[in-house]
Design a protein around this nucleic acid. Structure first.
Length: 360
DNA sequence: CGTCCACGTCTAC
DNA sequence: TAGACCTGGACGG
């Protein structure tokens, strides 16, 4: 669940559930985790959280007790910050001690009875944390919480080579779009009908610096402001997810359906998808744009349960990096595939469940 | 059983 | 621009 909205929801989650809780003792780490242990131990401390883009920072604040029997060796008295990245599968849980989830790699123990545990859970372990530091240098301002400087940061660096890339790939660059991930880029570009593989600079260079405070907008400016531009949607669409209220963050199935219903493009039946230059799946509708990878393969969505269709578009070689499946391909098949997949292809013809054998 | 795929970085050739 | 890093769910045989 981890893109900007999920990270921010995680911070809200921690503040809501742990705000009044006193924690105690050491911060414990799973054996298997490669992230460094957190050298913090305290008889009584509180936990608060903040987020920035795709990072969450926990602050452990020791509670000053009246009796000054502090001074035990290793006892902290100053606040400690821990900055987390969630990888592909990280999230926080707060559970009774005997219900700590599998893959809980960093744990904070409450001073209650029965005890509860705040856990950083991360099945794939692509996530990480670092104690004592701050936000990762090089990551840009938060798309949700630092909108103004985010916008400024992008528009003042358009000469950067990063904006040579297709817009869909630039949107994953955390130096400029801290918080955007794979589902958000699809949803954002979809709502503006921007082809994903057009050069980023071209999409961005005409945008206003905006937020020109004190200036009375004339009618034209007002009209322009009615139409949210790309950078504004990089802010507002993630906030839509946040405002759904915990859905989309919680890995439990019950909440997940709401999030699924919110998606208009990403993994949605009838949309097209291709691998971008970094091997990430880009979901879109219509024209992919001129910078689409040459050997890209278009794929129709596979639905999970209901109608389990798994239909690929015939044609182009399957460029699966890992398995290196060498597919034969004929020019004829290729052209027919492009005809079917690239041109907006009104999918009026309901999802066909025909499994066209690809390139075989 | 097996293969493919996943909301993300990292670093090495 | 490839892998590497991981687990697990969905789906196919």
């Amino acid at each position: 669940m981890p893109e900007g909205p999920e990270l921010h929801l995680a911070s809200l989650f921690v503040n809501r559930l742990c705000g009044g809780v006193v924690f105690t003792g050491a911060v414990t780490k799973s054996e298997v985790s490669k992230s460094p242990g957190v050298a913090f131990s305290c008889a009584a401390y509180r936990i608060s959280a903040a987020s920035r883009g795709k990072e969450v920072r926990l602050t452990l604040t020791p509670i000053k007790s009246d009796d000054k029997r502090r001074g035990k060796a290793g006892e902290a008295d100053r606040p400690v910050d821990i900055v987390f990245r969630f990888g592909m599968s990280g999230y926080f849980r707060f559970t009774p001690e005997d219900e700590v989830p599998k893959h809980a790699h960093l744990r904070f123990h409450s001073d209650e009875r029965p005890r509860r545990v705040l856990s950083f859970v991360d099945a794939r372990r692509f996530g990480s944390w670092r104690a004592g530091g701050s936000w990762q240098p090089g990551r840009g301002p938060c798309i949700m919480l630092e909108y103004s400087s985010f916008r400024q940061n992008v528009l003042s660096h358009l000469s950067d080579r990063a904006f040579d890339r297709p817009i869909c790939e630039a949107l994953l660059n955390q130096k400029y779009f801290n918080g955007i991930g794979n589902y958000l880029r699809a949803e954002i570009l979809f709502r503006l009908n921007i082809p994903p593989f057009v050069q980023a600079r071209g999409v961005l260079e005409d945008l206003h610096p905006e937020e020109t405070k004190g200036q009375i907008p004339d009618k034209k400016t007002q009209e322009q402001k009615m139409v949210p531009d790309l950078l504004r949607l990089c802010h507002s669409i993630p906030l839509e997810v946040v405002n759904m209220g915990g859905k989309g963050y919680d890995p439990e199935k019950a909440d997940y359906s709401d999030f699924e219903a919110w998606l208009q493009c990403y993994c949605v039946d009838g949309m097209s998808s291709v691998r971008d230059h970094n091997g990430r799946t880009m979901w879109f509708r219509g024209d992919p744009g001129p910078l689409v990878p040459k050997d890209s393969k278009s794929v129709k969505k596979r639905t999970k349960k209901d109608d389990h269709q798994d239909q690929k578009v015939a044609g182009t070689s399957s460029n699966n990096k890992k398995e290196k499946v060498i597919q034969r391909q004929t020019k004829k098949e290729k052209s027919s595939s492009e005809e079917e997949t690239s041109g907006t292809v009104r999918r009026s013809e309901r999802q066909r469940r025909t499994r066209s054998t690809d390139g075989k």
